[in-house]
C-alpha cells in the first residue's frame, strides 16, 4: 500500500491531477485540456501518474465539474471544499480565495483551520470568468504572456462598460474601429473583470484581510494587477494556482 495519494480536479476547461506524498509534498502534477469523455481521460491521466510515481493502490479523490465521472474514485468532494483545503495547505492561513477558472469563478472565505466559512460562485453567465477573456482577447491579438506588460504600459484604461461577454465583444470591436489603443482596451477589460469579481465576493471582502488568487487566470499577470488595483491591496497568487483544487482533493481523508 502506497503512502501516496492522488487528487484529480475535472474542470470545465482543464483537468488537473496531483500526486502527494505522506507529508503533503507534491510528487507529480498533470494538466490537460478537458476532453468530452471526462471519465476516460481521468482514468488515463491517473494511470500515467501512477506509472510515473509508483502510486499503485493510492486513494484517488475526485473533485471539479466532472467529479462524479471518475471510475474507482474513493471519494468525491466539491471543488469549493477542496480549494479551501488546498490553499490552506499551500499558504497555511485564513483568507479569501478567488478561484478564476474557465467557466466558473468562485470566492471562498477560508477560515483559520482550512474550512469553508462562506462562498459564492458566479451564476450561469460567463461574464466574470476566464471565458470572458478567452472570447475577447483574440479580437485584440493580445498574447496571454504579454498581457501584463500591455496592462502596465497603458496610459489609461479604455472603459468597457458591458459586462455581458457578447456585448463586450461588440463593444471592443467598435473601440478598435474608433482607433482606441489595444493596451488601453486590455486594461479596461481586466478592470471590468476585476469589478465583476469584487461584486461576486461582496461582503466576504470585508471579512478577510488577504485576497488570494488561484485558477488558470491567476497565471495572467494583468488580472493580478487589475484585482490588486481594484482592491487597493496586493493579491497573493497561490503557488501552483491551477492545481489548488487537485491538491485539496488529494488531502481529503479518503
Amino acid at each position: 500500500m502506497s503512502a501516496l495519494r492522488i487528487g484529480i480536479d475535472l474542470g470545465s476547461t482543464t483537468t488537473k491531477a496531483v500526486v502527494l506524498d505522506a507529508s503533503g509534498k507534491i510528487v507529480a502534477t498533470a494538466l490537460e485540456r478537458s476532453e468530452p469523455r471526462a471519465g476516460d481521460q481521468a482514468q488515463r491521466m491517473i494511470a500515467e501518474l501512477v506509472r510515473k510515481t509508483g502510486a499503485e493502490g493510492a486513494p484517488v479523490i475526485a473533485t471539479g465539474y466532472g467529479r462524479k465521472l471518475v471510475p474507482g474514485a474513493s471519494k468525491v468532494v466539491t471543488e469549493i471544499t477542496c480549494h479551501a483545503r488546498g490553499v490552506f495547505a499551500q499558504l497555511g492561513r485564513a483568507g479569501l480565495l478567488i478561484d478564476m477558472g474557465g467557466q466558473d469563478t468562485k470566492a471562498i472565505l477560508v477560515d483559520g483551520t482550512g474550512r469553508v466559512a462562506d462562498f459564492a460562485m458566479n451564476d450561469k453567465c460567463a461574464a466574470g470568468t476566464g471565458r470572458f477573456l478567452e472570447v475577447i482577447l483574440p479580437r485584440l491579438q493580445a498574447p496571454w504572456d504579454k498581457l501584463r506588460g500591455m496592462y502596465q504600459s497603458a496610459p489609461e484604461a479604455v472603459q468597457v462598460s458591458s459586462t455581458c461577454t457578447v456585448f463586450a465583444e461588440s463593444e471592443v470591436i467598435s473601440l478598435l474601429a474608433n482607433g482606441q489603443a489595444v493596451e488601453g482596451i486590455v486594461r479596461g477589460l481586466h478592470d471590468a473583470l476585476a469589478e465583476r469579481v469584487v461584486a461576486l465576493a461582496g461582503r466576504m471582502l470585508e471579512m478577510s484581510k488577504e485576497v488570494m488568487l488561484s485558477g488558470g487566470v491567476a497565471n495572467n499577470g494583468a488580472m493580478v494587477d487589475a484585482l490588486g488595483a481594484r482592491l487597493g491591496a496586493p493579491v497573493t497568487v497561490v503557488p501552483e494556482p491551477s492545481h489548488v483544487g487537485a491538491i485539496g482533493a488529494a488531502l481529503t481523508p479518503p
Partner: peptide, 9 residues
C-alpha cells in the same frame, strides 16, 4: 445601468 446596454447594437 450601462452595463446591460449595448451601444453598438
Amino acid at each position: 445601468d450601462s452595463r446591460s446596454y449595448s451601444k453598438e447594437q
